[in-house]
Computed example of a mutant assay.
Amino acid sequence: MKFIPAAILLAALSGPALAQMTPVGTWQSIDDKTHEAKSQIRISESGGVLSGRIEKLLRKEAKQDAVCEECTDDRKGQPLIGLEIIRGAKKAEGKDVWEEGKILDPENGKSYTLRLTPVEGGKKLEVRGSVLGIGRTQTWVRVQ
């Protein structure tokens, strides 16, 4: 009976560590050129499908009331803060990778095929956007 409280404590402490190997959470995107924080994105999960919205614009010169002027779908003219930029990503079977979704670049209004891969114990997230296999990978940093 003495071991039951210790087992409960161990399970409670290990739960958050295991939960970090998921894209679910809040992330800072980093500008490829300046290496400065660009925005804060919250990724959530519903029914096994991920979506992600911009929560904050972090650049000093960012207009907090900016809208997605370049978007061509239902997001055209929508405020950047609150804008859904990740849609439809699902966990690949047997891997810590989420695929089959799309990511929107609000700067050019284009959507790309998405792959999300937590790395460094879930402290960072590799975000790959591509078209016909050609694309780029950004590394986002988890907000603690």
Rank of each mutant, 00 (worst) to 15 (best):
Q28W: 15
L80P: 12
I85L: 03
G101W: 01
I103A: 06
K123S: 13
G88P: 10
A7H: 02
P23E: 08
Y112M: 01
W98A: 02
G122M: 01
G48T: 02
L114V: 01
C68K: 04
T22G: 06
Q40E: 15
V119N: 00
K56V: 12
I86Q: 01
E61S: 07
P16K: 02
C68R: 02
A89G: 05
V97H: 06
K95P: 05
G94S: 01
K95T: 07
A89F: 00
D74R: 09
P23T: 02
I54H: 01
G109P: 11
S44A: 11
L114D: 03
R87S: 14
R115Q: 12
P106F: 00
I81G: 02
A89Q: 06
K56E: 15
K38E: 15
D31C: 05
C68G: 05
C68V: 04
C71M: 11
A6S: 13
Q20A: 14
A92M: 02
R115F: 03
K90M: 11
L57D: 08
Y112I: 02
T113V: 12
E99R: 13
I30S: 10
E55M: 12
R115K: 13
I85R: 00
K63A: 12
D65F: 04
R42Y: 06
K102A: 08
R75F: 07
K38P: 08
I86W: 03
L116K: 00
E107N: 11
L13V: 06
K60Y: 13
R53V: 08
A62R: 10
L18G: 13
A89N: 03
K102P: 11
A11I: 05
A12T: 02
G25T: 11
L10T: 09
D105K: 06
I43N: 07
S111M: 13
L104F: 00
K110Y: 05
G94Q: 02
S29D: 06
L9K: 06
P16L: 03
D96R: 06
G88M: 06
M21V: 15
L116N: 04
Q40Y: 14
S111W: 14
W98C: 00
E84W: 00
E84I: 01
V97E: 11
L104Q: 01
R59N: 15
A6M: 15
R42H: 10
Q28V: 15
A92Q: 07
E120C: 08
I54Q: 03
K63M: 11
I41H: 02
Q20F: 07
H35R: 12
A12K: 01
S111P: 14
K102I: 10
K91C: 02
E99A: 09
L57E: 09
L83N: 07
K124Y: 08
A92S: 07
A11L: 09
A19L: 09
E100Q: 10
S51K: 01
L114C: 04
G122R: 07
K110S: 13
D32P: 09
K38H: 10
S44W: 11
A62C: 11
S29Q: 04
E99N: 13
E69H: 05
I86T: 05
